[in-house]
Amino acid sequence: MTLDVRTYIVMIVLSAACSSLNTDILVEIGIMTAITLLQLISAKGSFMPKLLICYVLMLLTQFVLFPVMPQTVVSLLSLPVVNIRSFFPTIMCIVLLYRNTKVSQMTATFTRMHVPKGVTITLAVAVRYIPALKEEWLHIREAMKMRTVSAGVRDPFRRMCRRLECQLVPLFVSAINTSDELSAAAVTRGIDDPTAPTCRNYKPLGLRDYTVLFITAIVTAFCVWREYGGAA
């Protein structure tokens, strides 16, 4: 099952709102379960077992290990474990968006929503560039492994500078080349055509979108109520 871009974006924003509002771990587990279920019925690759295991581990660390751990360890781990854990619903929603949205679909939807073309194009290219960036980073790391780039530099601070430079320079160079080549490819395919583009994959919001949006809204409202009104 695939939902609309807009639905995913609303989900991301609201899930982040819930994370910061909600303090009840049971509610959070409920939200996580719902998102995981949604991932399971979404496109292939939306469900990432590793992420879920990560979440469960953090949960266990916080509620099983912390009470029995020495105080120093707890104070060292508490902030990262708790903070990252509570943002997991949002991370999961971002994964959903990323795995279920085609770039062409995103562009078409944004154009319908009258987002300025400049924003849409830059965003499309940026989204497209993220996976390439990772690959490039690995290549540069390997190239650096093959050469002792900081040879002959004694001073640790300067060594660090040299390493930083060696990592950044090829990355920037390739980013610049890539962006030039991508924009050449984009303009020769009429990306700046002022007529409204069509999209084979564009669909208006459907019943499933409204259902998911409705559930999300209710959960958020529940979190708001818990925090600001009612029993608290």
Binding site: L14, A16, A17, P116, G118, T122
Partner: peptide, 20 residues
Amino acid sequence: RFAVLIFGIVPCAYFFASGL
């Protein structure tokens, strides 16, 4: 134009989501 704005979208969404 908009380059910086796009730069700002992520923190903006973050703040928006982080409280009412």
